[in-house]
């Protein structure tokens, strides 16, 4: 059965690595749902988190194909029960109507979000959570009026002593 899997990996910080990885996903017909990347403690290493839609055999192939790449240092499919997933969304809400503004502020508060900017006609909210929380927040604010959304995609880390590096 096809479902979402979170795969986390470390790569060499070298020009073209991100291209090579996305190219491999395209070549092998894997379906990337989201991808996030950033350097970690040292500047030589980039940690990438990919959410991929695949069945069990498919996600195994994703991990094996990544592992095979010379620039991939470590790779792991994260067990959803033993990892924390977070995503951040920036949402611009229409608030020309004062009632709408009131409602927006309440919802942002309910979802433990922040208000980053306020203009006469709109405001920008920042919401962090699991992808499902963000989906729920977006559903809740849609009646108010959503002008623009920017989501980061999932980043994840394992619980307890588990970690990516050996």
């Amino acid at each position: 059965m096809s479902e979402m899997h979170v795969v986390a990996f470390l790569v060499e910080n070298r020009p073209g690595v991100l291209f090579n990885i996305s190219n491999m996903f395209r070549r092998k017909n894997f379906n990337i749902h989201s991808i996030t990347a950033g350097t970690v403690l040292d500047d030589d290493t980039v940690r990438i988190t990919i959410v991929v839609q695949a069945d069990a055999r498919g996600v195994n192939q994703v991990v094996e194909q990544l592992d095979k790449m010379v620039d991939v240092i470590e790779v792991k499919r994260l067990d959803p029960l033993r990892a924390v997933n977070r995503e951040l969304a920036l949402v611009k809400l229409t608030t020309t109507d004062p009632m709408a503004r009131e409602e927006a502020l309440k919802l942002v508060n309910d979802y433990h979000g922040l208000i980053l900017n306020i203009e006469p006609d709109n405001l920008i909210a920042e919401v962090t959570g699991e992808s499902a929380d963000i989906d729920a927040f977006l559903a809740a604010v849609t009646p108010i009026g959503v002008e623009e959304v920017s989501r980061t995609g999932v980043t994840a880390i394992e619980k307890g002593r588990l970690k990516l590096e050996k």
């Binding site: 055999r57 195994n60 192939q61 094996e64 194909q65 592992d67 095979k68």
Partner: peptide, 11 residues
């Protein structure tokens, strides 16, 4: 020798 070949086409 290539782990990714296993289960790729034939289980």
């Amino acid at each position: 020798i290539d782990r990714s070949e296993i289960d790729k086409n034939v289980e």
